[in-house]
Design a protein around this nucleic acid. Structure first.
Lengths: 340, 340
DNA sequence: TGCCCGAATGTTAGCGCAATCATTTCGGAG
DNA sequence: CTCCGAAATGATTGCGCTAACATTCGGGCA
């Protein structure tokens, strides 16, 4: 006796019929529009419960021109950074009543970004957060954003769309400064891949901090975020007796570095100090536990979604170019004073 | 002169007007329905390009009753397992032309699952993959699936919905057997949280393998997947001189264990052998590099989405209860023969 | 020449909902 | 009572698209 047209789920019209009112009245009850008497409201509510009515989000979107959904474009969620950022964004979005549709780019290039953005647009997302930390994608967002608000998270290119990120330069400076303050003459650096914006920012921060202390930067070792690349770089560093301190651009490479140094009998932190970047959950349990830079991705997600929400809600709102969150240094046991 | 109603993006009607045909004909061109002459097809295509027309996915969904979107319900994407599974699912879904809407449960209980599933249903997803590896959610899916196909990934409860997963029991047996074959008298075990189905399956596999070798299982140490809990368990194990081999239910806890053993001066693998589970990217660079069980999440995602796709496409299709993927043992350096 | 048939194209209706405007109802002032 | 204005409710329309049916057109065949 419950559902009207058996099989398909109940529609607004079914509820209206059952409650003996017009569809419009049911709609008003659903959306708390007011101008509904208490008695009808109760009757409608009862009918809603009786047929287990749930509004069809797509139909509503179609008529309102808004879907209460935001799109997230990302690349390689397996990386700690992007993965955590997605989590933070999803959570913040859900709290504000948005659904989240996600698209992972297969390759981090212009075309992949373009097609991801277009396909999200087809689904009528109200706005998008793009996690696109690649130098190669400069300019890719400029034209796409037309109409739909876009926010870049974690990194992005100045001037295209508003950027929400963690201050990578500051993080790198904190790490480098920490090592210099122990009395190390200089700080070596294992960098991330050159085509990641974050790599550059971290390297730049490291270089800037060194130069402020009157130290010229030693040659950079190139990594690709993987522990393997950190390991390889570590083998080279281990052979160079002059190295006493290393700032590694992420924790996974730091792990590889620790492994290499251990193999070569180089003690950490007595012989060489190491500072990482990310503060992955594991880093506290590396051998030795890793001093590193913590990025707060939950806050990042909140800030990004809050900004996006504002852009969606208020078309006239003009966002700041760049919103930076400060990272913090987590001091553990992998860095200390140089051997005398 | 391009777009019809400036501002809003072009609709099918705009294209039709421009091409001088009916909306229906445009629709046929878009969907390759045939019965359109080459000359009109070309004219329509040109009009489409001219106004940069893109079909509105929601409007199409509304009329077709299908959205070409699948929903993914998960919990705590930061964990390596669920996070990787989401990646694999997204990728497989995209390859089959599905969009992916994701919902992360705040707490892993009945209600959270229920509301996640309902809200995905409201968005008219064609089907769902639920990553819900909790014993507490038994039965939660039974009624919800009504109408929309649901597949459980990674773990799930027998008989509710089809399950696609990696054979946890087999993985645990491989790990345990590997240790026994080195000649260890017995194998200790650090388990995951009791309310995760995967924990149980891994523990059961370990116990079964021991018993097949005529060994009674020593008391289990409880962990919670975190490196910290592995560390704590490790401290207790280190004090027990009789322990020579440990099967740890995931790599993070194994990392904690290695840390604790190292602190206590217990050598791995000379004094104690360790085998983990997951094969996270870092595990090859633990000290020593970790022998562990690899789960292929890419395949998991493909299998889950393929099954879901079939269920969506063919209403009559009856899936098998359970589809298991074999994990493999990755032999590295953390396990070896016991000291004589 | 006329007829028939299939290919090409158009018309109508409706997916489920809310904006808009029209209509009814009702309590209270006169 | 009557009449008024605000509150409550309803009818219509359309969001952008496609299914189902209707119509037109052109060429082959008797």
């Amino acid at each position: 006796m419950a559902e009207a047209r058996s099989g398909r789920s109940a529609t607004l019209a079914d509820v209206a019929r059952l409650a003996g009112v017009s569809a419009m009245t049911v709609s008003r009850v659903l959306n708390d529009r007011g101008n509904v008497s208490d008695s009808t409201r109760i009757r409608v509510r009862r009918a809603i419960d009786q047929v287990r009515y749930r509004p069809n989000a797509m139909a509503r979107s179609l008529v309102l021109g808004r879907s209460q959904t935001i799109g997230v474009v990302t690349f390689d969620t397996a990386q700690y950074g992007p993965g955590s950022a997605v989590l933070g964004i999803e959570r913040a979005a859900r709290e504000r009543g948005y659904g989240v549709t996600i698209t992972v780019m297969e390759r981090p290039d212009h075309d992949a970004l373009r097609s991801a953005v277009l396909s999200l647009n087809d689904r009528m997302v109200d706005g998008m957060v793009v996690i696109a930390p690649f130098t190669a994608m400069a300019g890719a967002l400029r034209d796409l954003g037309r109409g739909t608000p876009v926010v870049a998270a974690e990194a992005g290119h100045q001037g295209e769309v508003p950027i929400v990120g963690i201050d990578q330069g500051l993080g790198a400076r904190l790490a480098t400064r920490h090592l210099l303050e122990f009395g190390h003459r200089t700080v070596h650096h294992i960098a991330g891949p050159a085509d990641w914006i974050e790599s550059r920012l971290r390297s730049n921060g490291w270089r800037a901090e060194l130069s402020e202390h009157g130290v010229t930067a030693p040659p950079v070792l190139d990594g690709d975020w993987t522990a393997k690349s950190g390991y390889d770089a570590g083998l080279r560093l281990a052979d160079d007796g002059s190295v006493t301190a290393v700032f590694v651009a992420n924790d996974q490479m730091a792990l590889g570095l620790l492994h290499a140094l251990h193999e070569r009998g180089v003690r950490v932190p007595q012989d060489v100090s190491v500072v990482g970047f990310d503060d992955t959950p594991e880093s506290a349990f590396f051998l030795p536990s890793l001093t590193t830079v913590r990025q707060d991705f939950a806050t990042l997600g909140e800030v990004a979604v809050e900004l996006l929400d504002r852009l969606v809600t208020d078309a006239a709102y003009v966002a700041e170019d760049r919103l930076l969150i400060d990272p913090t240094l987590v001091v553990r046991k992998s860095a200390g004073p140089p051997a005398t």
